[in-house]
Design a binder for these strands. Structure first.
Lengths: 257, 257
DNA sequence: CCAATAGTGTCTATTAGACATTATATG
DNA sequence: CATATAATGTCTAATAGACACTATTGG
């Protein structure tokens, strides 16, 4: 508290919070190459990075990575710092999405938790997992969380569920799909990533729509090679597929237009 | 802090926040009936409710209504409580949208502010303004904020700007327009409310689109009277206009469908 | 009959949606 | 030549977008 004018200021007789942490739901999409006989798309799964707690409370249980903020940084900076400490990655997509403050949520006292989600390439996390004590870091499929035998510390189950809802919504409304993709990708990869996050997403004429639709266009553009010819990839198929990239422009979606 | 196991617990030697308030951006749309010779639509304007501070810091300046959370309530409950204390209204739309924690943002110390926006009918606020010391409560057009002579306390200018962005986005993606409308409304009223919040929204064939579009339909439905006939209103026009209501169902918007 | 809102007519180009069909290249 | 992905063909109904036009009724 600064000194100036503090004479007439009457706070200080009230209880203040015991801490304000940032907790981070780190999402990644794992890709498992199953079919070895023919080229094929990998099997993808949406996963969350958790850390096994070493200290009271909830000692030995899995929890979100995170840590307390201090008075020299904003909550966003706390999130960034913790994200880097836990995964070693910077410059990835991280977004604040909610605050968790229900009385009793943390046995240590009055702890107001600020939740972020981050979207990270699988490759980045692989390093981390290998580097440290691997037993204390785990990647869990979103669907298997909360099952018997895998209860999480604090209200982290709820936080993760809320985060999943957030990225499901944003996956369809924004271009965050690119956080899970290389710069240049095929439409099947994109489709697969969308479906991995939003399981009931289904679009029969996906390829055609993404190519044609002038209104929706501007979101994606086909990649050309140095000679100006369409650039293709046959990484996932015998027949080469056109590569696309996100343009950065975003149409304004609306109920009323 | 609970006592159990606290022996091995090492927090307490760090500085803790000096307070965690909820601040609320209360939006309303005012309607001014200008034309007295003929029936016409009112002139609408998006406004924010502010309160003149009586105490240090920023004494005498306009600020968002809000107040400190306590350890017996969640931040959302703090928001609800403050909203009711300031305006007397309950059961209105209120949503959390961001946290403000930049060091130095509050001269009283380390104060982490949690920002909500609320959408309230003009009528509700009119009561409040009449009841209390009217000089301390003001409704300000969003556009006139930040002008010379109307600087706001703390970082509240920024908070309001962020809130405006939020409701602009949500106005087009969700049915929050209904928070500013009566249960039954004409399409012109709806169109006007959208434009009041999102000034560059323009849709030439708005009426036709809202009627036809089967895909988008399900959002609105025409109101029928007790005889099953289309219910119309000529409140704003000579020729009676069909009344509509929101159905509650929401199509899933998507970049990719 | 004017003003102000509430619609409808009409036209073309584009899109949606469902399904069938063809294309490519590698093991 | 089977397989897995990558498209295109085809058809109908619906929609978008622009602009002109008609409808209603109190004052």
């Amino acid at each position: 508290m600064t000194e100036e004018n503090a004479s007439s200021y009457t706070v200080g007789k009230y209880r203040t919070p015991d801490g304000a942490p940032a907790d981070i739901v780190i999402f990644t999409i794992t890709a498992e190459h199953t079919n070895r006989t023919t080229k094929s798309l990998p099997k993808r799964e949406l996963k969350v990075l958790l850390i096994k707690r070493k200290l009271w409370p909830f000692e030995g249980m899995w929890a979100l990575p995170g840590g307390f903020s201090n008075d020299k940084e904003s909550m966003y900076e706390t999130g960034r710092r913790e994200l880097e400490e836990e995964t070693g990655v910077r410059d990835v997509h991280m977004e604040y999405f909610n605050v968790y403050s229900k009385p009793g949520r943390d046995p240590r006292g009055w702890i107001i938790s600020h939740a972020f989600f981050a979207l990270v390439h699988e490759d980045f996390l692989a390093q981390r997992k290998a580097a440290d004590d691997a037993a204390d870091v785990g990647l869990f499929a979103v669907n298997e969380l909360g099952r018997p035998g895998l209860e999480l510390a604090f209200d982290h189950q709820q936080i993760i569920q809320d985060a999943v809802e957030q990225i499901r919504s944003k996956m369809l409304l924004t271009s965050i799909a690119k956080e899970f993709l290389p710069d240049e990708f095929t439409l099947s990869e994109l489709y697969q990533v969308i479906q991995t996050v939003v399981p009931d997403f289904e679009e029969a004429n996906f390829i055609r729509k993404m190519k044609s639709t002038q209104s929706r266009s501007g979101v994606l553009e086909p990649v050309l090679d140095t000679k100006g010819e369409p650039k293709k990839s046959n990484e996932f198929s015998q027949r080469a597929a056109q590569l696309y990239r996100f343009t950065g422009s975003m149409p304004r979606l609306s109920l009323y237009s």
